[in-house]
Write a protein that binds this DNA or RNA. Structure first.
Lengths: 247, 247
DNA sequence: GGGAGTACGCTCGTATACAACCATCTCGAC
DNA sequence: GTCGAGATGGTTGTATACGAGCGTACTCCC
């Protein structure tokens, strides 16, 4: 297991709340858990620290970060600024292939809505926003949004399924704006979309409590959410999507 | 030299263009340069990779990142979204101490403008925006803006000094808005401030071409910005200002 | 009984050593 | 002369070993 894989594995375990916020992670236990030595673990922890998922104290150890309510809210607000920018960029710069992929995802999403396949919707939703970010043509924006999405998936644990229908209608509109090549319309559409999502997040009661022990994510219909999956790495990453699928 | 110090040292060398974009960095040479072993160097590189300053290819090596023109522009645009948000947050959440520090910095800045001490202005400017970010009360926003500012300092190499007078007048206005506790006014003030700065960046001709050798930025009237710094900060991480100052 | 000093264990920090792999150059065949 | 296969150097990837500092618990003294 390579160090980047270790990084992703730890991040997934954090997002899935196998490692709860505030928990101490010792290098050796992580090394044993993932079957590697301490060196790759240390590198993975440095990456995760830079991403804000953990923080380290010298000679003491590494701890899973704890985000306050206000920071969680800021997370949503920042994404609410970035994604519309991303969309207007995408309206101008998208390639036909990217538009095609988006439309395909929307079609799949609408089908899944009709059939009520919620866990698939979460994955498709992540993928849609991932491709949208990619279509902006800015790797910087793409990476930022990716990191934000992962943290949002972590903090809020779940993509609310009841918004699925409206959400995918909004995706249709976003696609249309991109197809028309209209940055302002794309910007407005995504702004609406994100603000609706924000409202959905903020109005639900946060169910952090039960996550404790080892593999706690047996709660079937909510568990899938996080799926942004490893966008950064070039090579083979695409398929894995470890976060998204339950065993 | 600890690994975080190594990280900062490498980052500073990248920003100062001691290591040019695209250059290959071997772990051993870095280890020798900073007088440590390869292990701390590897950890530093993982952090820098997460921050986007370098990228690694397995079994090949680590290379200094190369940012395109559009990505550089995006950098400014993203900061242009984030800093105003930061300011409205700060108007609501700032502590009196933070406001005091900001006002003190503005006073120092205006003095420095009057006396024409340009290199000091760059440092004060960075510090001002740093404290402003801190006053937002969101470590997330603070970190994001910090990273963005560092990258902007890297890509654009220099804080344009001729804007100094106007810039510090705008800082006065920002402070006033924060003192009044008026988020909208703060938002507007920072939006203006950033857009002026953006215009200044974008209208200058980018002198990247000659950057080859060690210290190529000898073009006198712009040269102060990305000063040497060289890890003057000892204790905590607080002083990212190392980038901005000149000897 | 309470507090301070001290010894111990645990974990991190760093260095060194070896294995895996890529890039390049050389040599030979066509 | 050109192309391909193999050997070689160099760099990264990983494991192991040892040193350094923190936290805890114990002991000793007051």
């Amino acid at each position: 297991m390579s160090p980047q894989q270790v990084c992703k594995a730890i991040r997934d375990d954090i997002i899935r709340r196998v490692f709860e916020p505030g928990r101490r992670l010792t290098e050796e236990s992580l090394a044993a858990r993932y079957g590697v030595s301490r060196v790759p673990v240390r590198e993975a922890l440095r990456t995760l620290e830079a991403e804000g998922f953990v923080h380290s104290r010298k000679y003491v150890g590494t701890f899973v970060a704890e985000l306050s309510e206000t920071e969680a809210a800021d997370l949503l607000e920042i994404r609410g600024l970035l994604e519309p920018l991303c969309a207007s960029r995408a309206a101008a710069r998208r390639t036909p292939e990217q538009l095609g992929r988006l439309k395909e995802l929307v079609a799949l999403g609408l089908d899944a809505v009709a059939d009520g396949r919620l866990e698939e919707l979460a994955r498709l939703n992540s993928r849609f926003h991932e491709v949208l970010a990619e279509a902006s043509g800015s790797t910087l924006l793409s990476q930022l949004i990716d990191q934000l999405s992962q943290k949002i998936a972590w903090v809020y644990s779940v993509e609310l399924p009841r918004r699925a229908h409206d959400s995918w209608q909004e995706h249709v509109e976003i696609c249309a704006a991109l197809e028309a090549g209209d940055p302002e319309r794309a910007h407005a559409a995504v702004t609406r979309h994100i603000s609706h999502a924000e409202a959905a997040y903020l109005f639900r009661d946060r169910g952090t409590g039960s996550a404790a022990g080892g593999d706690a994510d047996t709660d079937t219909d909510t568990g899938t959410g996080a799926g942004t999956g490893a966008g950064t790495e070039a090579g083979t990453d695409a398929g894995t999507g470890a976060v998204t699928e339950a065993p």
